[in-house]
Computed example of a mutant assay.
Amino acid sequence: MIERIGVIDIGTNTIKCCIADIDAGAFLVDQELSRTTRLGEALRHSGIISPLAFARNLDAIRELHALCLDASCSRVLYVGTMGLRTATNAAEFIHAVYRETKCHIRVLSGIEEAEYSCLGTLSTFPEQVGNTLMFDLGGGSSEFIFTTDGTISRSFSIDIGILRVRDEYCKTDPISKADYERMYSILYNTLKQYIVSTPDRQVIGIGGTVCALGSVEQQLPVFDADLVHGTILSFAALERQIELYRSQDNTARKQVPGMPLERSDVILAGATIVNVILELCGVPRFTISTRGVRHGILQEYCNGLL
């Protein structure tokens, strides 16, 4: 019997919703929805979900939950990540969501977030041979998963995300040369503690801003996850995008063909993080995945573990 469920992933930058049909131990995605709600706006400095972010995210959850019910989902599973791991008023937000939906948010640890990203991605890249690094670039943190022949050998989470990096280093628009060089240097010196050069390693990037890089590379008039998934972006093409974004203000970035409008103000921070990862790995390209935590949750549900 086919069962339809929804998964809502409350991230620091974006809320993502996936509605899927479960049948015979497998899932088939029916709808993918996202709302850029910036739960972690100014979180690093204030330590709390601001009143505006609180209300904005609760409104989006009401909308997405209603869409899940309208789509005849028998269950809606909620997970939260970095923003809800660190905000001092996270419990208040979780309770507010429960009042609205009667659903509890499961707040994932950094390791759980990494492993679900891996599980969701491997479901569409099943033939993994040799060494692979998957990174999931989020708003407040980034998760790294190292695999050998499809089996996780190491995974961890670092408090480096696109919102945090943008807020810390992108002080002017366009960014100044000095601020960009400082951002790159600090990211490089931080990430080199975790990543060593392995030129034969396959690298897979996950996350909305990573997917935006693929959309721009293809100059898509409307974002299309099916077209972006599996896109191979070279180091040289990534550097061309970075040089473009460094020279533009946010208004100009919004006009770049293929640019999702909600990503224009964080695209430079995200692209720079990816650039550092590729340089440290010593690889000339990476593959983009539109899958992530929500698909890992679906896979675990199919496996009877939720």
Results as ranks from 00 to 15, higher is better:
122 L>W: 05
251 T>G: 08
154 R>S: 13
17 C>H: 03
193 Q>M: 09
212 A>C: 03
211 C>N: 13
274 V>E: 00
71 A>R: 06
305 L>R: 12
253 R>Q: 07
127 E>G: 04
88 T>C: 12
51 P>Q: 14
267 I>M: 04
133 L>T: 02
123 S>F: 01
174 P>K: 02
184 Y>M: 02
49 I>C: 07
25 G>Q: 15
153 S>E: 14
43 L>R: 05
174 P>M: 08
15 I>V: 15
9 D>H: 00
86 T>S: 13
95 H>M: 11
42 A>C: 10
2 I>C: 02
277 I>V: 15
107 V>A: 13
218 Q>C: 10
62 R>P: 12
242 I>S: 06
26 A>S: 12
206 I>H: 02
299 Q>H: 07
281 C>S: 12
231 T>P: 09
83 G>W: 11
88 T>L: 08
126 P>S: 00
176 S>C: 03
299 Q>S: 04
179 D>G: 01
167 D>R: 11
297 I>Q: 11
193 Q>K: 13
87 A>I: 08
192 K>L: 14
64 L>G: 09
119 L>D: 15
268 L>P: 10
95 H>S: 12
299 Q>Y: 08
152 I>K: 12
49 I>N: 02
271 A>L: 02
48 I>P: 03
50 S>C: 03
188 Y>D: 06
285 R>Y: 07
227 L>C: 06
58 L>T: 04
52 L>P: 07
10 I>P: 14
126 P>L: 01
119 L>N: 11
14 T>K: 13
166 R>N: 06
62 R>I: 11
286 F>W: 05
256 V>M: 05
250 N>E: 11
206 I>R: 01
160 I>P: 05
142 S>H: 02
30 D>T: 12
5 I>Y: 06
